[in-house]
Design a protein around this nucleic acid. Structure first.
Lengths: 183, 183
DNA sequence: CCCACATGAGACATTCGTGTCTCATGTGGG
DNA sequence: CCCACATGAGACACGAATGTCTCATGTGGG
């Protein structure tokens, strides 16, 4: 009977990441609830977007914790991160795409902190000789976001099987498309 | 004096890809023109988006031609494609992100055709033993789009130098972040 | 079994973006 | 030098989306 706030937010993220101009009514329908109910839980579009932002940052932060980025090889840590991030992928795709939230160069401080942690992982990998040093940590971070978004959309549209999500992203990000001699 | 239609569209793409809900007024300001002038050149938001779609598809098609995807190794062809696509990257980022254009499962037929050509390149690479076969052509295609978008945004926000755009994308997509033994 | 409460549907006023118009300005070409 | 014309600014009406409200419904807990 009571609305599942979490499920509403995930549905909204999936919709809004592909159609940012969707109306509140469309969001409500997509979540299977009435527009009035949506308004009761989120006082207006701004509030909804803010909730998406908060949930996305919270889940990404939890994924960063769960992945234990400082343990083991950087590669293993990155694979763990991708695995942990998967459930939040549509949410992440929305946040990465829509940085209208961060208007006026007043980027969300929480986001910067998370950014720094991902970047630090890539830097660690470089310092330990695991990762290439000609691709900057900043780019690898952005690329990870881009691939997570692309993966979420591909799964959403059935172009990639959901079970392959982690593998496709991790393998491409780490090994690339080229067939290596060592395989 | 006269408006540079092309420049307006590129500015609009850069803005709308990051803030899809931007108003016509914001688009006009970003392009450095008045709202009335924007309306004189594009009769309404729908018309503007359509123009962006048309220009994006046209430029991507031209890039595909110029890259001669069937010539030489698949890797070289892919590098050429990335190089040719660079000027249209913000436009592509907009198109990939905003598939609200293709509402009601009536996806733009032109886009499907272009998709197929990129996908065919990856398939050729696999058949010739250049590319890994465990990453599907569909995923590699989506990943290319995702990385082009991430690259365009990174350059736009100064996180990656414009001169590194091609290199960063091509190297990551082909070789990945892992330091290979052959280097 | 009944009541409290959350929901869905819909009415309503308001806000905001849109699309059209006019008019003054200024520039570029003839 | 002057005129034609594109532009910028702003006024205006319209329409769509928003935000608030009421009321009927149905469910879940006590």
């Amino acid at each position: 009977m009571t609305v599942d706030r979490d499920q509403v937010l995930r549905t909204a993220a999936a919709l809004l990441s592909r159609k940012a101009t969707a109306t509140m009514d469309e969001v409500a329908r997509a979540a299977g609830i009435g527009r009035a109910t949506l308004h009761r839980h989120f006082a207006g579009r701004h509030s909804l977007v803010k909730a998406l932002e908060d949930l996305g940052i919270k889940e990404f932060e939890a994924a960063l914790e769960a992945a234990r980025l400082d343990d083991g090889t950087a590669e293993d840590a990155l694979r763990r991160l991708i695995a942990e991030v998967e459930p939040a992928a549509p949410l992440l795709a929305f946040l990465v795409t829509e940085n209208q939230l961060f208007e006026g160069d007043q980027m969300h401080e929480g986001w910067n902190r998370l950014d720094a942690r991902v970047s630090a992982l890539f830097r660690r990998g470089q310092e330990q000789g695991e990762f290439r040093i000609d691709l900057t940590p900043a780019w690898l971070t952005e690329a990870l976001y881009g691939l997570v978004g692309a993966g979420a959309w591909s799964v959403q549209e059935g172009r990639v099987a959901a079970k392959d999500f982690q593998y496709m992203i991790a393998e491409l990000l780490l090994g690339g498309a080229r067939r290596s001699v060592e395989q």
